[in-house]
Design a binder for these strands. Structure first.
Lengths: 202, 202
DNA sequence: AAAATTAATTAACAATGTTAATTATATTAC
DNA sequence: GTAATATAATTAACATTGTTAATTAATTTT
């Protein structure tokens, strides 16, 4: 039955589209079975014919957002010189994307998504996201002797944690207060971390 | 009416005690008006005679936990040599406390606590917590020329963000998988950040 | 001790997630 | 092409949780 498969995929798509619109617009707060179904133009119970529960549906948006985010970032940094410079640009753009879509940040890093069955794959998908975005640039740096593998691996982690930490404080606690100050702090932190590359081996 | 005040304080205390027990035991998941009231030995509606809502009650536990955490840390590090060494120890103990009580971490850093009226004070209370724990040691470092104010301020922020980021990943995404690996990573990161002190000015 | 006040409890309602029962739609057999 | 069947979608219903209103119990005041 090919038709059935196509139709089912289409239906899932409608609900996912609706969920993504709501997430980007009103945010996670506004997400509930009824609002999603409304947005999709169906009754709330119909959703359960295509998804185990509302968490599965929301979770599926993660992959979509990651792809979108990746595209946006790569577009933004393609003119930046390769190496450390581009790693800095990617990380800034990565942070910028989450500032633009706070609910995506919450979805990725904050929400525990309950006891979602496929928790572990999603977890590593998220944990390695920035690493994957920067992977080829780190390779470039190592190949060109700009840094070595050991310090690269440390700094990768540090970028990951610091980015996430800054975002968490900014989003959740409104600290620092404004976007300008926040991005200023981001610059300082990224400089501090990335300036260490190649200058010495700790 | 002095009695009334005493009684009211006592009642608030009962509910707070109950909430803290639940938080530390079952975690935030298990927190709801009825479970708190049960634990306290009252009906759920009674709670509303003493607290605006359940969020206020939960929020009040933050301060209590901070005090407890501070005491535990200071006890732990009192024999560590002052300066960078002790900053490292405090930060490790700080991370250790949250690993011990994951729900306190959630409460502090993850939960948005809705549109809590007193949001801002709580926010800065949390944001500055590690800084306050380390404040006198940083002063010590600056006074003794171990580091200067500029790099101290950068590194303070970095410690704050990295700690929070590592915890977020570990708690939320089970990454890295085990406690031993996690604490190993913590050591590496703290070394990397703190080794920069005084060796050079970036 | 009766009246009045205060505190505590039960009842009730609203929002949300989820499942069961019912209705509408589409597919298949003749 | 229509009746029987299968599938999909909807409404109804129930569970959980937060919150407020109405009622009952307790305490205080006179």
């Amino acid at each position: 039955m090919k038709n059935k498969e196509i139709q089912e995929r289409r239906m899932r798509g409608y609900f996912m589209q609706a969920t993504k619109e709501l997430l980007k617009g009103e945010g996670l707060r506004s997400i509930n079975v009824r609002s999603i179904a409304d947005q999709a133009g169906y009754s709330y119970a119909t959703l359960y014919n295509y998804f185990r529960d509302v968490k599965e549906l929301v979770f599926l948006c993660v992959t979509d957002f990651q792809e979108e985010c990746t595209a946006e970032i790569m577009q933004k940094v393609k003119k930046t010189p390769r190496g450390i410079e581009r790693i800095r640009a990617i990380t800034k753009a990565y942070i910028g994307y989450f500032v633009q879509y706070p609910s995506v940040f919450n979805l990725f890093f904050v929400e525990k998504l309950g006891d979602l069955g496929q928790k572990q794959p999603a977890a590593s998908l998220i944990f390695t996201f920035l690493d994957r975005l920067c992977a080829s640039e780190w390779d470039y740096c190592i190949e060109n002797g700009i840094t070595d593998e050991n310090s690269a691996s440390l700094i990768k982690q540090e970028l990951n944690f610091v980015s996430c930490g800054m975002l968490l404080f900014y989003m959740n606690r409104i600290q620092p207060a404004g976007y300008i100050e926040f991005m200023g702090m981001v610059d300082l932190q990224l400089n501090s971390i990335l300036n260490r590359c190649g200058t010495e081996t700790n």
